[in-house]
Amino acid sequence: MADQLRIAVFASGQGSNFQALADAAVQVKLGGSIELLVCDKPDAPVVERARRAGIDAWVFTPKDYASREAYEAEILAELQRRGVGLIVLAGYMRILTPVLVEAYAGRMINIHPSLLPAFPGMNAIRQALEHGVKVSGVTIHFVDGGLDSGPIIAQRTLDISEGETEAMLADRIHAAENVLYPWAVRAIAEGRVSLNGRRVSLDAAVDFGEYEASADK
């Protein structure tokens, strides 16, 4: 039997997506094991979530290093030591350099609270509301070094209601993220996702049904 995919989650804040991934792993619904949390903020709540889940955390303070490349080189060495095969960015608020992006090309994914390529970058939910769009949602994509520009793996659409506030929409988007991200990681871990240039293909056996039902609750 092949070894499970070893996963590292990168996060900087509250860690709701980290928790969703950790919970899925406990329920044997992730398709792999979370080997490590990488966090750039020692006091971030996600660090405590990792402790409670029994997941090791590699926590660092960026200002202690001469450059982004310097701390990413240390992170890369730790990932390689642990045999990590997939990096999952879950609210990691640091710009990545080629040190990690190139080493994990096609093996690093991110989640973004809009329907990319619309509204990349910071404050995507606010951008969508200010623009007056009627539909927003969630995008999971491979990381390619650009600003939320990598090949798209999956998206979930959400209608925007009249008078919906940023906080209201954020709550719904985050709930959808918490369901879609574990599903996508599992699809990758099971070898059901293939990347060819900018085209991402999903195996026909991938079932959205459970995801759709859970996200609509």
Rank of each mutant, 00 (worst) to 15 (best):
M1H: 11
Q4W: 07
Q4K: 14
R6A: 14
A8Q: 06
V9W: 08
F10W: 12
F10S: 02
S12Q: 11
Q14T: 15
G15Q: 11
G15M: 08
G15R: 09
S16P: 09
S16H: 09
Q19K: 13
Q19I: 02
A25S: 14
A25I: 02
V26W: 07
K29R: 15
L30R: 09
L30N: 08
G32Q: 06
S33L: 12
I34F: 03
L36G: 09
L36A: 04
L37R: 00
V38S: 03
C39F: 01
P42L: 04
P42W: 09
P42K: 10
A44G: 02
P45W: 04
V46K: 01
E48V: 09
E48N: 10
A50E: 08
A53R: 14
G54T: 11
I55R: 03
W58C: 03
F60Q: 10
F60S: 06
K63M: 06
D64A: 13
Y65R: 09
S67E: 09
E69T: 07
E72W: 04
I75L: 02
L76W: 08
A77Q: 14
E78C: 00
L79F: 00
L79V: 04
R82A: 07
R82K: 15
V84Q: 02
V84Y: 03
G85Q: 14
V88C: 15
A90Y: 03
Y92L: 00
Y92H: 10
I95Q: 11
V99A: 07
E102H: 12
E102I: 00
A103K: 04
Y104A: 01
G106C: 10
R107L: 04
M108W: 09
I109G: 03
H112S: 05
P113I: 01
P113E: 11
S114H: 10
L116D: 13
P120D: 10
M122A: 15
N123F: 05
A124Y: 03
I125D: 00
Q127M: 02
L129D: 09
L129I: 11
K134H: 11
K134A: 14
V135F: 01
V135Y: 00
S136I: 04
V138W: 00
T139P: 08
H141I: 05
H141T: 08
V143C: 05
G146R: 00
L147Y: 08
G150M: 01
P151T: 06
I152Q: 08
I152D: 01
T157S: 13
L158M: 10
E164D: 12
E164L: 06
E166Q: 14
A167F: 14
L169F: 12
D171C: 10
I173N: 04
A175N: 06
E177I: 01
V179G: 07
V179A: 14
V179W: 05
V179Y: 12
Y181K: 01
Y181V: 05
P182R: 05
V185N: 04
V185P: 08
I188G: 05
A189E: 07
E190W: 03
G191Y: 11
S194F: 06
L195N: 08
L195A: 06
G197M: 11
A204Q: 14
A205Q: 15
G209L: 09
G209F: 07
G209I: 07
E210Y: 10
Y211T: 15
E212H: 12
S214N: 11
A215M: 02
A215R: 05
D216V: 09
